[in-house]
């Protein structure tokens, strides 16, 4: 079985984000780059499927040269080979990324594709859906349980408030992986060493994109207002509780 994994290299969520002076992006100097955490679940699920069904796990990522490192990390976990679409000089948004990844995937004729449910840098949660649409495949996301029998996948998708959908999907399908789907393995040292010599093919973004251009025009990056120091709500329990409920609704807007 030929299994594809869509992978993105993102800044560690703890990284301090600094806006470039021109306001058109973030400074990349001090960023610690990691595999998008949700993509680790995708790699793990792909590896588990391969261990059961045999075949090959191919990592596909669209990014600049540094993204190769993330691909290697996935190879260290046990994936067989990687494809990096070199996006140097390309304006990347969910649309162009989906077009490029779908283009690469088409050439590979995968039978199933796993991806993280979203990337933690832009949190768009669009790319895997876009790839499915471009390939004419169904997609299911987010998925917290996955099983395959024959050419039919059974998936569990959490929706609001603890409700879960049990979905049956015909292969090929794109699966968006949610936390809890599995516990990603810890790469072994031989895995890390072997990953150094596994093949990572490079594709040109321009060839996959043709004349397609980004559909999101980011006009400005800015920092959010400084997080206010915590607010201690004074007063007797009754009054304090009432005020807290009001603040959560009106100020924090979380209730």
């Amino acid at each position: 079985m030929k299994i594809g994994v869509l992978l993105k290299q993102v800044p560690d969520t703890e990284t301090k984000i600094k806006i470039r002076a021109d306001g058109k992006g973030v400074e990349e100097g001090e960023i610690k780059w990691v595999i998008n955490p949700y993509d680790e679940y995708a790699v793990e699920e792909a590896l588990r499927l391969k261990e059961k069904a045999g075949g090959e796990v191919v990592i596909v990522s669209a990014g600049p040269a540094r993204a190769t490192e993330a691909i290697r990390q996935a190879l260290a976990m046990g994936a067989d080979r990687g494809i990096r679409i070199d996006t140097t000089g390309i304006e990347q948004d969910p649309y162009t990324t989906a077009v490029m990844l779908a283009g690469a995937a088409k050439n590979e004729s995968f039978e199933i594709i796993f991806a993280g449910k979203q990337a933690v840098d832009d949190d768009c949660a669009q790319v895997l859906i876009g790839v499915a649409e471009k390939l004419g495949w169904p997609h299911v996301t987010p998925v917290e349980k996955f099983a395959l029998s024959g050419k039919t996948a059974t998936l569990q998708r959490p929706v609001a408030g603890g409700t879960k959908e049990m979905i049956e999907a015909d292969l090929p399908v794109v699966v968006g992986c949610e936390k809890g789907l599995n516990e990603p393995r810890y790469a072994s040292l031989p895995g890390i060493m072997k990953a150094k010599s596994k093949p990572v093919a490079e594709l040109k973004a321009s060839e996959l994109l043709g004349t397609e251009r980004a559909r999101i025009n980011v006009t400005k990056y800015s920092l959010p207002p400084e997080r206010r120091a915590g607010k201690i709500i004074p007063g007797e329990p009754e009054a304090a509780a009432a005020e807290l409920v009001r603040l959560l609704r009106e100020e924090a807007k979380v209730i």
């Binding site: 800044p11 969520t13 990284t15 301090k16 984000i17 806006i19 973030v26 933690v120 840098d121 832009d122 949190d123 980004a214 559909r215 999101i216 025009n217 980011v218 006009t219 400005k220 990056y221 800015s222 920092l223 959010p224 807007k253 979380v254 209730i255």
Partner: peptide, 26 residues
């Protein structure tokens, strides 16, 4: 918000129609 809320972007979705999803309780 992007980068887990550590930055905010302003953006124009291109094409016709322009599409967006809005965070509930905003």
């Amino acid at each position: 918000p992007v980068y887990a809320g550590k930055a905010i972007i302003e953006a124009i979705p291109e094409g016709i129609p322009q599409m967006a999803t809005s965070r509930p309780n905003t």
